[in-house]
């Protein structure tokens, strides 16, 4: 792919965020008028433990250029321990994705409700990283 085409590439990023922390952080980033790239599509979950790793697989196989997950910091879950369970599941799915070289496209973060700035900065760096990776090769495939 030439330099020009790379510049035009706008990745599609699917994000799974928990209602109580990262979704609120995204809201805060908005109300505090922080600017960040519009490439991410956020899907709100009530808790990070609602993240079924199948969601990640399905998004990646259907051609999402990047997938991210973000929830409350460990120990600060609204439901006490949801993100501890989520962390184990994410570690497992990441190990599997790593085997097939897909883990670069899946990122996970902990962003609390007060970290609007961190959310905006994370979205900026994430979009840059995914742009660097280029389009997901699964997009054009017949599966």
């Amino acid at each position: 792919m030439g330099e020009e085409a790379k510049e035009e590439f706008e990745p599609k990023i699917v994000g799974f965020t928990c209602n109580w922390c990262t979704y609120a952080a995204a809201d805060l980033a908005g109300t505090s008028r922080k600017k960040y790239p519009p490439n991410s599509r956020i899907i709100r979950l009530m808790c990070s433990a609602r993240l079924d790793p199948m969601f990640v697989l399905k998004a990646l196989l259907n051609g999402a250029d990047g997938v991210f997950f973000s929830g409350c910091h460990p120990g600060e879950c609204h439901y006490i321990k949801g993100n501890f369970y989520a962390r184990r599941r994410i570690a497992a799915i990441r190990t599997i994705l790593k085997q097939f070289g897909l883990d670069d496209r899946f990122k996970s973060y902990w962003i609390s409700a007060s970290e609007g700035e961190k959310f905006a900065n994370t979205m900026k760096s994430l979009t840059e990283e995914v742009k660097e990776l280029g389009p997901n090769p699964m997009r054009g495939k017949i599966i």
């Binding site: 460990p74 321990k81 369970y85 184990r88 994410i90 570690a91 190990t95």
Partner: peptide, 13 residues
């Protein structure tokens, strides 16, 4: 998947 440690696995994330 039914258990956890409070501090673990951060390097796997």
């Amino acid at each position: 998947f039914t258990a956890y440690e409070e501090e673990e696995l951060e390097e796997c994330l």
